[in-house]
Amino acid sequence: MINFRAWDKGTELMNDITVIDLENEEIYYHHWRYGHSEAIPISDIELLQSTGLFDLDGNEIYIGDILKVEDEYTQVVFHEDNTTYGIYLEDKEGGGNPISDYSTRISLNHIKGTIEGNIYQHLHLLEE
């Protein structure tokens, strides 16, 4: 099963998605503190897909997460070019290392790092 979460641009909260209604272009989510949402237009959120991978603490890693690997902060991104597509850890210069490369079926169960935040709430970590 593919998991998603949503960054609500209006409330600036990260939420677990419960329903994606593609026909009406809406989502419903659950926030751990505020409960279930009403229908929210997909245009009012940033939809973030799980990578299917987990950090050293067992937390599920999503696109947009910021990981600390050794002493470096890196962003989890989806990368697509003419030869490959997959999940990458992007460095500050825009390059990166694949953590799941669908063209060669490289995939790791756990990343040797921990989730420190995400690009919506903790972007300053990438600037350090």
Rank of each mutant, 00 (worst) to 15 (best):
N3H: 11
F4Y: 15
W7R: 02
W7P: 03
D8G: 01
K9H: 09
K9N: 11
K9Y: 04
N15C: 15
T18S: 12
T18C: 02
L22G: 01
L22W: 04
L22Y: 09
E23Y: 03
E23Q: 08
E25R: 12
E26M: 12
E26T: 12
I27H: 07
Y28A: 02
Y28K: 14
W32R: 10
W32H: 14
Y34E: 13
S37P: 08
E38Y: 06
E38S: 14
P41G: 08
I42Y: 04
I42N: 01
S43F: 06
S43A: 13
I45C: 14
L47R: 07
G52N: 05
G52A: 04
L53P: 01
F54A: 02
D57Q: 11
D57K: 13
G58R: 04
N59I: 00
E60W: 02
I63W: 01
D65H: 15
I66E: 09
L67W: 06
L67T: 05
L67M: 10
V69N: 05
V69A: 07
V69C: 13
E70Q: 12
Y73V: 04
T74F: 02
Q75R: 14
Q75P: 00
Q75T: 04
V76M: 10
V77H: 03
D81W: 03
N82Y: 11
N82Q: 11
Y85N: 15
G86R: 07
Y88D: 11
L89D: 08
D91R: 06
K92A: 15
G95E: 13
G95N: 14
G96I: 04
G96V: 04
G96M: 05
N97L: 14
N97V: 15
N97K: 11
I99H: 08
I99E: 10
S103K: 12
T104C: 11
R105M: 12
N109F: 07
H110S: 12
H110P: 00
I111T: 03
G113S: 08
T114N: 13
I115A: 10
I115D: 10
I115R: 12
I119E: 14
Y120A: 05
Q121D: 15
H122L: 01
H122A: 13
L123M: 14
H124Q: 14
H124C: 02
L125E: 09
L126Y: 12
E127N: 14
E128F: 07
E128Y: 09
